[in-house]
Design a protein around this nucleic acid. Structure first.
Lengths: 154, 154
DNA sequence: GATTGACCTCAACATTAGTTGAGGTTCTAG
DNA sequence: CTAGAACCTCAACTAATGTTGAGGTCAATC
């Protein structure tokens, strides 16, 4: 390893290793406007160091369930050109915390309803709120929501 | 509409309308072993009425984020042949409530961590738990989790 | 200055959860 | 009995989120 001054830009391999995101995924993020890189004379990518934080934000947002499209929108609110400040990041995190709160509330609501349904063993289409979203979850009617895929094979 | 005795099996159109799931999705569920149907002499599907509840279970499970594969596994625990009783359904719902609880706990944990991160504006790769899952969410490392896709365009 | 690992692009494939359309059949109401 | 709505199958397509491989180039080390 070279001396590596702390401000030297990162190669894709370094960014990949430090972020835990595969190079192919980084390419993919770039194609989709989530991150960007300078190029060397020989056309290789060189990432500014704050890209690491950017990738961290992407990963974390994904873990919580946001699609890349939404993450991109959020990132678009960061200042162009200059390295984002803590305040910039804080604003994103704050907005994001609100969504988390809503998500939690929705799940708790669902949980309560499930208690009711266990009582009656129903999941009836008419009476069960679980079956009649209407409000918090899936308001868009659109995409499936996922959670942990690992349903323990044993 | 014919008199329709309450026990008459459902056509795919009826099941679709009552469940809010498109016929093509019902075909898809059948291909994937989530539901099944008798056939008329003319090869049209006729669904037992409890299929309605089955579909309700599928929809609800999806709303909460489970992939169809897992839902199928859960449904496989229902008795073959006979119409499931309330107890049968209750067992599924119960198991399901536990997963919901875990999911809520995980999100709350995440929420707490986020508070910390807002304080420092970080999302730092080293210090932030949000960046170091390790435990509850995404233990499988695998699939993305999604939530509400509607990030309010405004 | 050559080797070798890291990097480049582009195209094709994988998976989940369906939708759409073509081409043909069945069922039901009048 | 016939018109038209509802149904059938099969294949191809969509969208999101990447991965894999082929074929070729760069750059850091011996």
């Amino acid at each position: 390893m070279p001396a590596a001054p702390a401000h030297r830009p990162l190669t894709i391999g370094e960014l990949s290793e430090r972020s835990g995101v595969s190079p192919s995924a980084l390419h993919f993020y770039e194609r989709n406007g989530l991150i960007e890189a300078e190029r060397t004379a020989g056309n290789q990518r060189r990432y500014r160091r704050d890209t690491l934080r950017r990738v961290a934000f992407i990963k974390t947002s994904q873990r919580v369930g946001l699609p890349l499209k939404d993450i991109r929108e959020a990132l678009d609110s960061l200042p162009e050109g200059r390295t984002p400040t803590k305040r910039d990041w804080s604003k994103l995190s704050l907005r994001w915390g609100e969504e988390l709160d809503q998500r939690i509330a929705a799940l708790q609501h669902l949980r309560n309803d499930l208690d009711g349904c266990i009582g009656c063993g129903c999941l009836s289409l008419k009476s069960c709120t679980l079956q009649n979203p209407s409000d918090e979850l899936g308001a868009s009617g659109a995409g499936a929501q996922r959670w942990n895929q690992a349903t323990e094979q044993h």
